[in-house]
């Protein structure tokens, strides 16, 4: 389908451009916004692969929550960029070497005939109408991969508890309200109605 290919190339170009902008722009806020664009384009490409659940979850989790917190922190901090850029020239040769090595590896995988090349893998057949990506994922996660899934859940729980334990501190000398106590307050506790005779104005 030519339309699908056009959409793929459009999003792929945006993805690569945005990803390279993330590491080249000077302003960290721009970098985070480009990262958001990168995630969004990646989600669109996943959508083309008929992985709609994963695509939308990528947007919900990374774009909707994680990157908002990133932006929050980056905007609050006054980051001085000069020390961050200091080692750039020094490490550049090593970086170029690593980049070339990785590019060569990728090309060897993609262009080698008969082993991993694109000729070895036929195009995946499109899923039949009514196929639910979400249901398929759920069935796999809760049957075949139940143990790894549960272990991952426990690891996350430990991480949550650790994060809370690390940041929780008791501070003395600050005033905190107790909402339960506030709700329980009755007017009788603080207001006393006094019956008294009206005072006579002087000279009557």
């Amino acid at each position: 389908m030519i339309v699908q290919e056009l959409i793929f190339y459009a999003y792929a170009v945006v993805l690569v451009l945005a990803a390279s902008m993330v590491i080249t722009v000077r302003n960290p806020v721009y970098a985070v916004l480009f990262l958001v664009l990168t995630f969004f384009s990646a989600a669109a490409i996943w959508m083309l692969l008929e992985a709609e659940f994963l695509a939308i979850v990528l947007v919900v989790v990374y774009v909707g929550a994680v990157m908002v917190l990133f932006l929050f922190v980056v905007m609050m901090l006054d980051i001085n960029l000069v020390p961050l850029k200091e080692g750039f020239i020094r490490y550049l040769p090593v970086a170029i070497l690593v980049a070339i090595a990785m590019a060569v590896e990728l090309l060897m995988v993609l262009w080698s005939k008969g082993r991993f090349g694109t000729d070895m893998f036929p195009l995946p057949a499109p899923n039949p109408v009514g196929h639910s990506n979400t249901r398929a994922l759920g069935e796999l996660l809760y049957s075949n991969y139940l143990l790894p899934f549960e272990v991952a859940g426990v690891v996350l729980l430990v991480a949550i508890i650790a994060a809370i334990a690390l940041t929780l501190r008791k501070r003395t000398g600050i005033k905190i309200q107790d909402p339960g106590q506030q709700v329980r307050t009755r007017s009788e506790d603080s207001v006393r109605l006094v019956k008294m005779k009206p005072e006579k104005p002087p000279g009557v």
Partner: peptide, 25 residues
């Protein structure tokens, strides 16, 4: 009539906050 309608809605309602943050900044 998409299968993932509920999370699609959740994803989109969570995107609106970017406009607010970007406007403020």
């Amino acid at each position: 009539d998409v299968d993932a309608g509920l999370i699609y809605v959740l994803a989109l309602t969570s995107l609106g906050v970017y406009g607010v943050i970007i406007a403020g900044w």
